[in-house]
């Protein structure tokens, strides 16, 4: 049998009409090792963490990113997120299906965020300095995740909020998921702070736009950070709300620089000039997130394989 193989192979080499390029050989090896890696038992490979950045509705791009990553077979051991990244991360960790997340991206009305988003609410906001309540959003998330607690999530998850009184970073990793999610996306200046254990909590993006350190503290050896990258260059804000959101974005970009350095790999989804509260563009954001992740997928796989090389060849 072996002789037959050798004979056939020598004949094949003589014809040699299907020679591979170096790039094709690299792809072949990467795909093989990747499949071997994702089949490794959890205790025989490094722990993988994913952190999702804030970014307002631009953060819907995380849905597209996660979809591509799941199709690639990437195992996920821990997750963290801030603001919109927290919402997507929580839904994902709770096992909400991709179809449902797509549906939320396409159909979620802005009124799901607050019961005050009415004419009366707007008048009170403008003339009475009364911020919108985000309680309705907490109920909405609670309904989506089925009232689950952090302790019983499929994938261990934590999210970040900020205490507006002290400036401290508050990490939610226990109790009802929806409460933490609400606190993490509670945009200051728009939503009233969430009162929780003597604290007044606002959007975590104020102190930690992309919580890489938290996912490491949870136990991740290798961290993938996904950043919904804005583009400020195309327009100057023209409204008070526009300025509030732009300031949050700029602050976020500043905070992200450090987080990026401590992640093992960063996927920057170039969401362009989709505005932080542009509800019409959420599906475009999902699509852009998927595209950015597909573009970086091979490089991400190579990075993780190089990190895990000793596990693969054990």
């Amino acid at each position: 049998m072996k002789k037959l193989f050798l004979c056939l192979f020598t004949l094949g080499l003589a014809l040699n009409s299907f020679a591979l390029t170096t790039k094709e050989e690299d792809t072949l090896l990467r795909d093989f090792l990747w499949h071997e890696f994702i089949l490794l038992p959890k205790d025989k490979r490094p722990k993988i963490g994913i952190t999702l950045s804030a970014g307002g509705l631009r953060g819907f791009s995380h849905i597209g990113s996660m979809e591509v990553l799941m199709e690639s077979g990437l195992p996920v051991d821990y997750m963290t997120g801030t603001s919109m990244g927290c919402i997507v991360g929580a839904l994902f960790s709770a096992g909400v299906s991709q179809e449902r997340m797509h549906k939320l991206a396409s159909d979620m009305p802005i009124s799901a965020l607050s019961s005050d988003l009415t004419l009366v609410g707007a008048i009170k906001y403008i003339f009475d300095d009364k911020l919108f309540s985000s309680q309705k959003f907490q109920d909405f998330i609670d309904n989506e995740v089925g009232g689950v607690y952090y302790e019983s999530l499929t994938i261990p998850f934590a999210c970040v909020s900020a205490d507006i009184k002290t400036g401290e970073k508050i990490v939610f990793d226990s109790g009802p998921v929806a409460r933490g999610v609400r606190a993490s996306m509670n945009l200051p200046g728009i939503f009233a702070p969430v009162e929780y254990r003597q604290r007044y909590l606002v959007d975590g993006g104020v102190v930690d736009y992309m919580p890489v350190d938290i996912v490491r503290e949870m136990g991740a050896d290798w961290v993938l950070a996904i950043f919904a990258l804005p583009d400020y260059s195309k327009n100057v804000p023209s409204t008070i709300m526009g300025y509030v959101l732009r300031t949050a974005d700029l602050r976020g970009a500043y905070l992200t620089t450090n987080s990026e350095k401590s992640a093992n790999f960063v996927i920057a989804a170039r969401v362009g000039d989709i505005k932080a509260m542009d509800i019409k563009e959420t599906l475009t954001a999902v699509d852009l997130g998927a595209k950015a992740t597909i573009k970086d997928l091979a490089a991400m796989q190579e990075n993780l394989l190089l990190f895990s090389v000793d596990y693969v060849f054990k």
Binding site: L8, L11, G12, L20, E25, L28, F32
Partner: peptide, 20 residues
């Protein structure tokens, strides 16, 4: 591979699996 012995991609994949 036996269906097309000129296919180096199939041969190398086969060799890779076998060696691993």
């Amino acid at each position: 591979w036996l269906m097309d012995i000129n296919r180096e991609d199939i041969y190398l994949t086969y060799a890779l699996w076998t060696a691993y």
